[in-house]
Design a protein around this nucleic acid. Structure first.
Lengths: 144, 144
DNA sequence: CCATATCGTAACAATAGTGGTTACATAAAC
DNA sequence: GTTTATGTAACCACTATTGTTACGATATGG
Protein backbone atom coordinates (compact mmCIF):
# COMPACT_ATOMS: atom_id res chain seq x y z
CA UNK A 1 0.00 0.00 0.00
CA UNK A 2 1.26 3.43 -0.94
CA UNK A 3 -0.68 6.47 0.18
CA UNK A 4 -4.44 6.72 0.09
CA UNK A 5 -7.20 6.30 -2.46
CA UNK A 6 -9.02 9.59 -1.82
CA UNK A 7 -8.06 11.16 -5.11
CA UNK A 8 -8.86 8.09 -7.18
CA UNK A 9 -12.23 7.63 -5.49
CA UNK A 10 -13.02 11.34 -5.76
CA UNK A 11 -12.41 11.34 -9.51
CA UNK A 12 -14.69 8.32 -9.76
CA UNK A 13 -17.35 10.14 -7.74
CA UNK A 14 -17.23 13.30 -9.85
CA UNK A 15 -17.13 11.28 -13.06
CA UNK A 16 -20.26 9.54 -11.85
CA UNK A 17 -21.96 12.87 -11.19
CA UNK A 18 -20.92 14.11 -14.64
CA UNK A 19 -22.26 10.90 -16.17
CA UNK A 20 -25.60 11.48 -14.41
CA UNK A 21 -25.60 15.23 -14.99
CA UNK A 22 -28.87 16.94 -14.05
CA UNK A 23 -29.94 14.25 -11.58
CA UNK A 24 -29.69 14.24 -7.81
CA UNK A 25 -27.46 11.29 -6.93
CA UNK A 26 -27.40 9.84 -3.42
CA UNK A 27 -24.26 8.77 -1.57
CA UNK A 28 -25.70 5.25 -1.49
CA UNK A 29 -25.91 5.11 -5.26
CA UNK A 30 -22.36 6.40 -5.67
CA UNK A 31 -21.11 3.98 -3.01
CA UNK A 32 -22.57 1.14 -5.03
CA UNK A 33 -20.60 2.23 -8.09
CA UNK A 34 -17.40 2.61 -6.08
CA UNK A 35 -17.99 -0.55 -4.00
CA UNK A 36 -17.63 1.07 -0.62
CA UNK A 37 -19.63 2.47 2.28
CA UNK A 38 -21.87 5.55 1.78
CA UNK A 39 -20.16 7.28 4.71
CA UNK A 40 -16.82 7.05 2.96
CA UNK A 41 -18.41 8.75 -0.05
CA UNK A 42 -20.05 11.43 2.07
CA UNK A 43 -16.74 12.17 3.76
CA UNK A 44 -15.15 12.86 0.39
CA UNK A 45 -18.18 14.77 -0.85
CA UNK A 46 -17.96 16.94 2.22
CA UNK A 47 -14.54 18.13 1.03
CA UNK A 48 -15.76 18.49 -2.54
CA UNK A 49 -18.71 20.61 -1.43
CA UNK A 50 -16.38 22.84 0.60
CA UNK A 51 -14.25 23.25 -2.53
CA UNK A 52 -17.40 24.30 -4.42
CA UNK A 53 -17.12 21.49 -6.93
CA UNK A 54 -20.33 19.82 -5.81
CA UNK A 55 -23.70 20.87 -4.42
CA UNK A 56 -25.45 18.71 -1.83
CA UNK A 57 -29.11 18.63 -0.79
CA UNK A 58 -30.61 16.92 2.21
CA UNK A 59 -33.97 15.28 2.56
CA UNK A 60 -36.30 13.33 0.34
CA UNK A 61 -35.20 13.50 -3.27
CA UNK A 62 -31.90 14.96 -2.14
CA UNK A 63 -28.40 14.00 -3.15
CA UNK A 64 -25.44 15.51 -4.96
CA UNK A 65 -24.72 17.14 -8.29
CA UNK A 66 -21.88 19.01 -9.98
CA UNK A 67 -21.61 22.68 -9.10
CA UNK A 68 -20.14 23.61 -12.51
CA UNK A 69 -20.03 22.31 -16.05
CA UNK A 70 -17.70 19.31 -16.41
CA UNK A 71 -15.50 21.33 -18.75
CA UNK A 72 -14.78 23.73 -15.89
CA UNK A 73 -13.62 21.09 -13.41
CA UNK A 74 -10.13 19.65 -13.82
CA UNK A 75 -8.41 16.74 -12.12
CA UNK A 76 -6.23 19.34 -10.41
CA UNK A 77 -9.28 20.95 -8.83
CA UNK A 78 -10.26 17.56 -7.45
CA UNK A 79 -6.74 16.79 -6.31
CA UNK A 80 -6.49 20.03 -4.38
CA UNK A 81 -9.92 19.57 -2.85
CA UNK A 82 -9.22 16.19 -1.27
CA UNK A 83 -5.46 15.95 -0.81
CA UNK A 84 -3.51 17.93 1.76
CA UNK A 85 -0.58 19.98 0.51
CA UNK A 86 2.16 17.34 0.03
CA UNK A 87 5.32 17.97 1.99
CA UNK A 88 7.34 15.02 0.64
CA UNK A 89 8.49 14.15 4.13
CA UNK A 90 9.96 17.56 4.92
CA UNK A 91 7.94 17.92 8.11
CA UNK A 92 9.74 14.97 9.71
CA UNK A 93 13.02 16.29 8.35
CA UNK A 94 15.09 18.24 10.87
CA UNK A 95 18.74 17.87 9.88
CA UNK A 96 21.71 18.99 11.93
CA UNK A 97 22.26 22.66 11.10
CA UNK A 98 25.76 22.52 12.53
CA UNK A 99 26.68 20.39 9.51
CA UNK A 100 27.21 22.42 6.32
CA UNK A 101 25.13 19.91 4.37
CA UNK A 102 22.38 19.71 6.97
CA UNK A 103 22.19 23.49 7.11
CA UNK A 104 21.53 23.94 3.42
CA UNK A 105 19.94 20.78 2.08
CA UNK A 106 16.41 21.62 3.14
CA UNK A 107 16.13 24.68 0.91
CA UNK A 108 17.52 22.74 -2.03
CA UNK A 109 15.02 19.95 -1.44
CA UNK A 110 12.12 22.37 -1.15
CA UNK A 111 12.99 23.90 -4.51
CA UNK A 112 13.31 20.53 -6.23
CA UNK A 113 10.08 19.18 -4.72
CA UNK A 114 8.19 22.31 -5.66
CA UNK A 115 9.25 22.02 -9.30
CA UNK A 116 8.33 18.34 -9.44
CA UNK A 117 4.97 18.98 -7.81
CA UNK A 118 4.20 21.91 -10.11
CA UNK A 119 4.99 19.79 -13.14
CA UNK A 120 2.70 17.02 -11.94
CA UNK A 121 -0.13 19.42 -11.17
CA UNK A 122 0.13 21.01 -14.62
CA UNK A 123 -0.48 17.59 -16.10
CA UNK A 124 -3.55 17.05 -13.90
CA UNK A 125 -4.86 20.46 -14.94
CA UNK A 126 -4.84 19.34 -18.58
CA UNK A 127 -7.64 16.84 -17.98
CA UNK A 128 -11.20 18.02 -17.33
CA UNK A 129 -14.22 16.06 -16.17
CA UNK A 130 -15.60 16.55 -19.66
CA UNK A 131 -12.59 14.71 -21.06
CA UNK A 132 -13.19 11.92 -18.56
CA UNK A 133 -16.87 11.79 -19.42
CA UNK A 134 -16.12 11.58 -23.13
CA UNK A 135 -13.78 8.66 -22.50
CA UNK A 136 -16.46 7.00 -20.41
CA UNK A 137 -18.98 7.26 -23.23
CA UNK A 138 -16.59 6.47 -26.08
CA UNK A 139 -17.39 3.34 -28.05
CA UNK A 140 -14.82 0.60 -28.02
CA UNK A 141 -12.46 1.04 -30.99
CA UNK A 142 -13.04 -1.61 -33.65
CA UNK A 143 -16.60 -2.34 -32.55
CA UNK A 144 -19.58 -2.26 -35.03
CA UNK B 1 2.18 14.10 8.10
CA UNK B 2 1.89 13.00 4.47
CA UNK B 3 3.81 10.01 3.25
CA UNK B 4 7.36 9.20 4.28
CA UNK B 5 10.71 10.95 4.40
CA UNK B 6 12.79 8.29 2.67
CA UNK B 7 13.37 10.29 -0.47
CA UNK B 8 14.23 13.51 1.34
CA UNK B 9 16.64 11.72 3.67
CA UNK B 10 18.19 9.74 0.80
CA UNK B 11 18.94 12.91 -1.15
CA UNK B 12 20.54 14.32 1.98
CA UNK B 13 22.62 11.16 2.37
CA UNK B 14 23.86 11.16 -1.22
CA UNK B 15 24.50 14.90 -1.11
CA UNK B 16 26.62 14.27 1.96
CA UNK B 17 28.58 11.56 0.16
CA UNK B 18 29.07 13.90 -2.82
CA UNK B 19 30.23 16.62 -0.45
CA UNK B 20 32.78 14.22 1.06
CA UNK B 21 33.71 12.62 -2.25
CA UNK B 22 36.69 10.27 -2.08
CA UNK B 23 36.30 9.52 1.63
CA UNK B 24 34.75 6.50 3.33
CA UNK B 25 31.84 7.86 5.35
CA UNK B 26 30.26 5.82 8.15
CA UNK B 27 26.54 5.52 8.78
CA UNK B 28 27.12 7.13 12.18
CA UNK B 29 28.62 10.24 10.60
CA UNK B 30 25.76 10.55 8.13
CA UNK B 31 23.23 9.97 10.90
CA UNK B 32 24.72 12.89 12.77
CA UNK B 33 24.19 15.17 9.78
CA UNK B 34 20.62 13.94 9.29
CA UNK B 35 19.83 13.87 13.03
CA UNK B 36 18.62 10.30 13.17
CA UNK B 37 19.71 6.79 14.08
CA UNK B 38 22.52 5.06 12.13
CA UNK B 39 20.28 2.07 11.50
CA UNK B 40 17.79 4.29 9.68
CA UNK B 41 20.62 5.47 7.46
CA UNK B 42 21.91 1.96 6.85
CA UNK B 43 18.43 0.81 5.86
CA UNK B 44 18.27 3.50 3.20
CA UNK B 45 21.85 2.85 2.12
CA UNK B 46 20.98 -0.79 1.71
CA UNK B 47 18.50 0.19 -1.01
CA UNK B 48 20.94 2.67 -2.54
CA UNK B 49 23.67 0.01 -2.73
CA UNK B 50 21.25 -2.40 -4.40
CA UNK B 51 20.47 0.34 -6.93
CA UNK B 52 24.23 0.69 -7.58
CA UNK B 53 24.31 4.33 -6.56
CA UNK B 54 26.54 3.70 -3.56
CA UNK B 55 29.34 1.32 -2.59
CA UNK B 56 29.65 0.06 0.97
CA UNK B 57 32.59 -1.50 2.82
CA UNK B 58 32.56 -3.32 6.12
CA UNK B 59 35.18 -3.39 8.84
CA UNK B 60 37.69 -0.95 10.26
CA UNK B 61 38.03 2.10 8.02
CA UNK B 62 34.88 1.05 6.17
CA UNK B 63 31.87 3.12 5.23
CA UNK B 64 30.11 4.35 2.12
CA UNK B 65 30.92 6.31 -1.00
CA UNK B 66 29.27 7.21 -4.29
CA UNK B 67 29.42 4.54 -6.99
CA UNK B 68 29.46 7.09 -9.83
CA UNK B 69 30.33 10.71 -10.48
CA UNK B 70 27.75 13.10 -8.99
CA UNK B 71 26.93 14.34 -12.50
CA UNK B 72 25.72 10.83 -13.37
CA UNK B 73 23.28 10.49 -10.46
CA UNK B 74 19.94 12.31 -10.70
CA UNK B 75 17.23 12.84 -8.15
CA UNK B 76 15.12 10.46 -10.23
CA UNK B 77 17.69 7.70 -9.74
CA UNK B 78 17.44 8.25 -6.00
CA UNK B 79 13.66 8.43 -6.06
CA UNK B 80 13.39 5.12 -7.89
CA UNK B 81 15.92 3.47 -5.60
CA UNK B 82 14.07 4.19 -2.37
CA UNK B 83 10.40 4.67 -3.28
CA UNK B 84 8.11 1.87 -4.38
CA UNK B 85 6.25 2.33 -7.64
CA UNK B 86 3.40 4.69 -6.67
CA UNK B 87 -0.07 3.37 -7.39
CA UNK B 88 -2.00 6.48 -6.31
CA UNK B 89 -4.46 4.33 -4.40
CA UNK B 90 -5.41 2.12 -7.31
CA UNK B 91 -4.60 -1.06 -5.39
CA UNK B 92 -7.38 -0.38 -2.88
CA UNK B 93 -9.63 0.61 -5.74
CA UNK B 94 -12.05 -2.11 -6.88
CA UNK B 95 -15.12 -0.39 -8.34
CA UNK B 96 -18.32 -2.12 -9.33
CA UNK B 97 -17.83 -3.34 -12.89
CA UNK B 98 -21.57 -3.73 -13.33
CA UNK B 99 -21.77 0.06 -13.33
CA UNK B 100 -20.75 1.64 -16.65
CA UNK B 101 -18.65 4.21 -14.79
CA UNK B 102 -17.08 1.67 -12.45
CA UNK B 103 -16.22 -0.57 -15.38
CA UNK B 104 -14.23 2.07 -17.25
CA UNK B 105 -12.93 4.59 -14.75
CA UNK B 106 -9.89 2.59 -13.70
CA UNK B 107 -8.27 2.66 -17.13
CA UNK B 108 -8.90 6.39 -17.40
CA UNK B 109 -7.35 6.95 -13.98
CA UNK B 110 -4.31 4.84 -14.80
CA UNK B 111 -3.65 6.89 -17.91
CA UNK B 112 -4.00 10.21 -16.09
CA UNK B 113 -1.83 9.09 -13.15
CA UNK B 114 0.83 7.79 -15.48
CA UNK B 115 1.08 11.10 -17.30
CA UNK B 116 1.25 13.06 -14.06
CA UNK B 117 3.89 10.72 -12.65
CA UNK B 118 5.97 10.83 -15.82
CA UNK B 119 5.91 14.61 -15.79
CA UNK B 120 7.04 14.72 -12.17
CA UNK B 121 9.82 12.22 -12.79
CA UNK B 122 11.09 14.20 -15.77
CA UNK B 123 11.52 17.17 -13.46
CA UNK B 124 13.45 15.07 -10.94
CA UNK B 125 15.68 13.78 -13.74
CA UNK B 126 16.71 17.37 -14.52
CA UNK B 127 18.60 17.70 -11.22
CA UNK B 128 21.87 15.83 -10.65
CA UNK B 129 23.86 15.38 -7.47
CA UNK B 130 26.43 17.66 -9.01
CA UNK B 131 23.80 20.41 -9.21
CA UNK B 132 22.94 19.79 -5.57
CA UNK B 133 26.59 19.84 -4.58
CA UNK B 134 27.14 23.14 -6.39
CA UNK B 135 24.23 24.66 -4.55
CA UNK B 136 25.63 23.35 -1.28
CA UNK B 137 28.97 25.01 -1.95
CA UNK B 138 27.63 28.23 -3.46
CA UNK B 139 28.38 31.41 -1.58
CA UNK B 140 25.43 33.38 -0.25
CA UNK B 141 24.31 35.90 -2.87
CA UNK B 142 25.22 39.46 -1.86
CA UNK B 143 28.20 38.35 0.23
CA UNK B 144 31.65 39.99 -0.47
C1' DC C 1 44.74 -15.23 15.52
C1' DC C 2 42.38 -11.72 17.95
C1' DA C 3 40.45 -7.31 19.01
C1' DT C 4 37.98 -3.71 16.93
C1' DA C 5 35.21 -1.19 13.79
C1' DT C 6 31.64 -1.37 10.78
C1' DC C 7 27.96 -3.06 8.06
C1' DG C 8 23.42 -5.94 7.50
C1' DT C 9 19.26 -7.05 9.17
C1' DA C 10 15.80 -8.91 12.29
C1' DA C 11 12.66 -7.77 15.92
C1' DC C 12 9.96 -4.72 18.56
C1' DA C 13 7.40 -0.55 20.16
C1' DA C 14 5.29 3.98 19.47
C1' DT C 15 2.80 6.79 16.49
C1' DA C 16 -0.20 7.98 12.92
C1' DG C 17 -3.03 7.56 8.59
C1' DT C 18 -6.71 5.04 6.16
C1' DG C 19 -11.02 2.91 5.34
C1' DG C 20 -15.06 0.56 7.03
C1' DT C 21 -18.79 0.57 10.27
C1' DT C 22 -22.34 2.09 13.57
C1' DA C 23 -24.82 5.66 15.48
C1' DC C 24 -27.31 9.68 15.65
C1' DA C 25 -28.44 14.57 14.99
C1' DT C 26 -30.12 17.74 11.29
C1' DA C 27 -32.74 19.14 7.51
C1' DA C 28 -35.82 18.90 3.54
C1' DA C 29 -39.96 16.94 1.11
C1' DC C 30 -44.46 15.40 0.90
C1' DG D 1 -44.94 14.05 11.36
C1' DT D 2 -43.07 10.48 8.78
C1' DT D 3 -39.66 9.50 5.57
C1' DT D 4 -35.42 10.20 3.19
C1' DA D 5 -31.04 11.79 3.04
C1' DT D 6 -26.97 14.38 4.50
C1' DG D 7 -23.23 15.62 8.15
C1' DT D 8 -20.23 14.08 11.30
C1' DA D 9 -18.46 11.92 15.46
C1' DA D 10 -16.66 7.73 17.42
C1' DC D 11 -14.50 3.50 17.13
C1' DC D 12 -11.99 -0.60 15.16
C1' DA D 13 -8.72 -3.16 12.30
C1' DC D 14 -5.02 -2.76 9.43
C1' DT D 15 -0.80 -0.97 7.68
C1' DA D 16 3.29 2.11 7.11
C1' DT D 17 6.92 4.66 9.17
C1' DT D 18 10.46 5.63 12.30
C1' DG D 19 13.38 4.89 16.12
C1' DT D 20 15.64 1.56 18.93
C1' DT D 21 18.09 -2.62 20.63
C1' DA D 22 20.39 -6.60 19.54
C1' DC D 23 23.40 -9.46 17.26
C1' DG D 24 25.71 -11.87 13.50
C1' DA D 25 29.01 -11.24 9.56
C1' DT D 26 32.99 -9.26 7.69
C1' DA D 27 37.16 -6.64 7.01
C1' DT D 28 41.37 -4.39 9.04
C1' DG D 29 45.48 -4.03 11.63
C1' DG D 30 48.23 -5.49 14.99
Amino acid sequence: MTGNSRFAVSVHVLAYLAYKAGEQVTSAEIASSVSTNPVVIRRLLSALVKARLVLGHKGVGGGFGLASAPANITLLDIYRAVEPQPDHGLDRFAPNHKCPVGARIETILRTAFFKAQTSMEAELARVSLEDVNQQLKAVCPGKH
